[in-house]
Design a protein around this nucleic acid. Structure first.
Lengths: 104, 104
DNA sequence: AGGTTAGTCAACCATATAGTTCACTTATCG
DNA sequence: CGATAAGTGAACTATATGGTTGACTAACCT
């Protein structure tokens, strides 16, 4: 599976995006990541594996904990892909704004 | 399914991203979209449906063709989500660059 | 040593995706 | 009218996802 496929797929789940948001504040062990969710630790572990397979997160054992860390590169790759179309949506939304605002 | 879930999921397929790229150049009928792919028209039709369910594309009948048009808003929503973490990855990648470049 | 905490693994279930083929409807062309 | 082109819909297959539970391993704390 191409990298971008896996990156976007990894980001296509609310739980995983919340995990990414959590990790943006610094590394955290699995159990910390799991705490906010009404879901088994196993389920969170699988979400982290999806993120890790996509390269969005790296996991390192320390004692009995698995510390997860957000990785920059795939985030940037996804943002870069979208940025190629930034001019497209900015023009459209500006045009819409002008239409709704009826200015001039 | 939350909007962002569907948007990212829609973008998590190479074929669909290629369709988006094609449509960024202007609207096109399904058969034009399908032409570059070694895949049945039915398959492409299903891809377009995924994009359309995600709000990324609108489809309008004209004659016997279905013209597809790229929609701006969900693209921007996805980019906005990623942008929240832009500072994160820029810092990381800059730090990496400094390390590799060994400047100062 | 014994108990608790952190996490994985395997099995299972339900649903979604990505593709196929075949049959069908519409619309255009001659 | 009849042929062709554009596209949908249904049925099918294979694989992935998102979740569960239960058994297990590994580490830390008394």
């Amino acid at each position: 599976m191409p990298d971008l496929d896996r990156t976007f797929a990894a980001l296509s789940d609310t739980t995983r995006r919340a995990i990414v948001a959590h990790l943006a504040g610094g590394e955290a062990p699995l159990s910390d990541l799991a705490a906010p969710f009404d879901m088994s630790l196993t389920a969170v572990s699988k979400h982290v594996r999806v993120l890790s397979d996509a390269g969005l997160v790296s996991v390192s054992k320390r004692g009995r904990s698995r510390y997860c860390q957000l990785k920059a590169a795939p985030m940037k790759d996804a943002a870069d892909w979208l940025d190629d179309y930034r001019s497209f949506w900015e023009e459209r939304l500006e045009a819409l704004g002008r239409y709704l605002g009826e200015e001039t």
